[in-house]
């Protein structure tokens, strides 16, 4: 039973990683930027989620508001921070992004206080029995929500005209532009969707921990980077698989390797191991 339990926990954790990492890999696929500040948007999503839930009492409304506001903030970050430095060497955007992320965390700390905020009436705390393991409703909602969002993304990018334009731009921006696609619009859309996904993850983590702290983005910030690298940088399907895989590996790893390595170190040991064998990532094409 322990195995099933660990697997379930790993998958719940993995879904959260997936929601954060998808946005990151979308940004990387389109602009070749390692968008560390993405984790700052994840945190912002958590704050908006808790504040709106406390004000209105509706978690669903809070989730929507968080996704839309954070999506817009994401677009603003693209416009104000990344667009002017796109032609610089890659480390420029990376370091700018790290700086932005640190500054964002500090702003949250100064605005919302260092101790974090929580739900007044934490929703979805009931416990359910599923497949022989005990899960909180919040955990089930997290996994289901992730499935729903990722499914919606797959339909959107696969079945709509805008989705086709989006995929075309990721594959070859110049060619896409010559076919009349407005690639600037695609970039905004890209940042909006990616940031909205991060925000949804933020709300879910807030729900699971019943807590939003200024530093809650620190772990996802670097862990999501590890995941998108594992997934092959810019490959959405690979990123999803890598996120789930890492969630499960961490869940088992902390039990069996916890004596030698802590949770973060397990993730990175796995990452380094994979990269040395497959420098293009687990699912990346050579």
């Amino acid at each position: 039973m322990l195995y099933v339990e660990l697997l379930a926990q790993g998958l719940v954790q993995g879904s959260i990683y997936a929601l954060v990492a998808v946005g990151l890999t979308l940004v990387y696929g389109l602009l070749r930027i390692l968008h560390v500040a993405h984790a700052g948007l994840f945190t912002l999503g958590g704050y908006v989620g808790v504040l709106v839930t406390n004000a209105t009492g509706s978690l669903l409304l809070a989730l929507l508001v968080a996704m839309v506001t954070v999506g817009i903030v994401g677009m603003a970050i693209y416009r104000l921070c990344y667009q002017p430095i796109l032609d610089k060497p890659p480390y420029v955007a990376l370091i700018a992004s790290i700086g932005l992320f640190i500054a964002m965390e500090e702003v949250y700390r100064l605005v919302f206080g260092p101790y974090g905020i929580s739900f007044e009436n934490p929703p979805l705390q009931d416990v359910v029995q599923m497949f022989g393991v005990t899960l909180r409703l919040g955990e089930v909602a997290t996994a289901a929500g992730t499935l729903l969002l990722v499914g919606a993304l797959a339909v959107f990018s696969g079945k709509t005209r805008f989705g086709t334009a989006w995929r075309a731009t990721v594959t070859d921006p110049d060619m896409a532009e010559s076919f009349g696609i407005d690639i600037i619009k695609v970039r905004y859309l890209n940042f909006f969707i990616g940031s909205a996904f991060a925000a949804s993850a933020g709300v879910m983590v807030a729900l699971l921990n019943n807590m939003v702290e200024p530093t809650m983005g620190s772990v996802p910030s670097y862990k999501a980077l590890a995941i998108i690298v594992l997934g092959g940088l810019g490959d959405v399907r690979g990123t999803l698989l890598a996120a789930l895989a890492l969630g499960v590996i961490e869940a088992f790893g902390t039990i069996y390797l916890g004596k030698f390595l802590d949770r973060d170190a397990i993730a990175f040991a796995f990452l380094i191991l994979v990269l040395m064998v497959r420098p293009q990532g687990l699912f990346g094409r050579a």
């Binding site: 990387y28 890659p90 990376l94 670097y222 590890a226 940088l233 990175f268 990452l271 380094i272 420098p279």
Partner: peptide
């Protein structure tokens, strides 16, 4: 970028 993340991993 892969190197940046690998070295970050070494740190962790």
């Amino acid at each position: 970028d892969f190197l940046a993340i690998t070295t970050m991993g070494v740190g962790f």
